[in-house]
Design a binder for these strands. Structure first.
Lengths: 318, 318
DNA sequence: TGGCGTTGAGAAAAGCTTTTCTCAAGAAAA
DNA sequence: TTTTCTTGAGAAAAGCTTTTCTCAACGCCA
């Protein structure tokens, strides 16, 4: 039996007797034959591997993205190299070179904020590059969450519950995400209350509540927080002051970071950025590019959704 | 110029004039020549890739392990496929098959607890397998943290601070880690106080404090917690009761999960399992096996270390 | 000057698949 | 019976490196 005949039998190509084809397949199954992906890749210029580059050490954002990528691509036989490059350009180059040497079919760049670039140059690479949750090069394909729409979702939810004095405690206004969310908030509630910018820490959540409650005048009946850590601290701080959540004040977070949102007492209603879906899209896109299909460049924003738990009141069934 | 001469020039092998060698190297650098790793792998049976298999969705334990692996191997030109297989045997097989097709040099299995196996059969694979923070097959190489020693570290630290009534609030006793830590605790403080088994949740931390403080008799002056989430809840619960940490009660956690330990008020003194070092060792070991060096099978425990913050008092400088 | 050793460089094979070409045999048509 | 198709199967090349072998040329010694 010649090698070429066997190859054709297994790939259902070429012309041959059905009986021959079956016989080959049986024999192959019997000896547990595995075609060597390296040889195949050498020939076809497709390795069915991609690289995921990130500077997100804790995997806070990258892990959901990675999960989405894998979910979308594992069925296509694609495996993913995860490269955590911190913010080190040298390390970045080492990893990118390793990926290129291995002839990955494409690279997805990810990160921990959408207005910063990875410290590596990904232009003029011989493989397609897609950006997910990090700033992309001009004319590249970039996926990110719709911060504006997410914030609208949160604030409208609070308004729908009858809340009118809605405060906004958020992160540093150097973040585009923060400014987008603040803009959406402003658009819905006007200029009655100031946006409270701070750091992404629990300490700031406590501090902000202190500022709000120590000030003279009416207190907020709802607080829209820039992330779940702040929200958690806000909830804790309110409880410590004897303010009931959600009866007296509704609190909504951002990120749906399970590990924080679900452990807060009461568990947080929060905005989920759908990072997994974002990863899925990015994975399918880089695959399309690898297969030579053309993809319109530009920034694609994916909608957020609200995950209702108990920190706002309202009927979780709705 | 023949291809073979060029190859020898670039690899500093073969015999040729220095001038020729230099000329080849210059030319290669000029055109940005990259040897094709696929072709090289086809020939040498080394792909400089390994697979990391895990069922730890949140990356709580796997990410530090991964960071260690990468850190140890990136210098050797090795890239790592990360495969999150949840607890799905089918998904596990899909990923393992994909890895084998791609001829990874080895596989590292990891997980979220050291007394459970991944839902995949990794015996009789054509590549070496190393286990890190998950239960390994018999006669395999397995790395895990020394829970007993870590617990000793924690309790002795409390004792060194003069604490005598040390409670132990921990997770379910179905976990080997929990039993190991409890055993170490027992060995040091005797049977005076019961070990309090519960769940790995903040709720349990609150509940446990309630039980301890609602009971009649003397209160503990220290609490050794089974993980940082419990420790955080314990600290919160104590504060809510007006008990001062660390003045009245010292609290020590386990895991050194930055995101929890550093945000707790006060920040947690906690046991670090050195997962990064564990990953490094696992990476170097799988590399050694891939290179044909022989490695003694067995379980290797790596020592934990105590990270001193402020929840115990004592001088962090010591 | 003939033989031998050395040195530099090229040829060829191996590693594994897939694809394209070629070819032989058998069947159908003339 | 001879010619023409059709069908099934094998040969060969390509994809890229590395390694082993071979070979030509040159210098040196006898």
């Amino acid at each position: 039996m010649s090698i070429s005949t066997a190859s054709k039998a297994l790939n259902n190509t070429g012309r041959m007797g059905d009986e021959t084809r079956e016989r080959v397949k049986r024999a192959a199954a019997e000896i547990g034959f595995r075609p060597n992906a390296l040889a195949k890749g050498l020939l076809s210029n497709r390795t069915f591997t991609i690289g995921l580059l990130t500077n997100d050490t804790y995997g806070r954002f990258t892990l959901p993205v990675m999960a989405g990528i894998t979910e979308a691509l594992v069925d296509h036989g694609v495996s993913v190299f995860l490269c955590t490059i911190e913010d080190d350009p040298v390390l970045g180059k080492v990893h990118v070179d390793a990926l290129l040497d291995k002839h990955v079919d494409g690279i997805i760049a990810s990160g921990k904020r959408i207005d910063r670039r990875l410290p590596v140059d990904l232009s003029n690479l011989p493989v397609p590059v897609v950006y997910a949750f990090t700033e992309g090069a001009p004319d590249s394909v970039t996926f990110c969450a719709d911060d504006f729409q997410g914030a609208v979702l949160a604030v409208e939810w609070l308004q729908g519950l009858g809340r009118r004095q809605i405060a906004h405690v958020t992160g540093p206004d150097s973040f585009v995400s923060v400014r987008e969310r603040a803009k959406a908030y402003r658009g819905l509630i006007g200029d009655a209350l100031p946006v409270m910018y701070g750091t992404w820490s629990e300490a700031w959540g406590h501090e902000a509540v202190a500022q709000l409650w120590n000030a003279a005048g009416a207190k907020p009946d709802a607080i829209f927080c820039g992330n779940d850590q702040i929200a958690r601290a806000v909830v804790d701080a309110l409880r410590e002051r004897g303010v009931r959540v959600p009866e007296d004040v509704s609190v909504v977070g951002f990120d749906n970071w399970e590990i924080v949102a679900a452990q807060t007492r009461p568990p947080l209603t929060t905005v989920d950025m759908n990072l997994k879906a974002l990863g899925r899209e990015a994975g399918l896109t880089v695959l399309a590019l690898a297969e030579g299909r053309s993809v319109e460049p530009g920034i694609r924003t994916l909608p957020c959704e609200l995950v209702v738990r108990q920190s706002c009141g309202g009927d979780p069934e709705l």
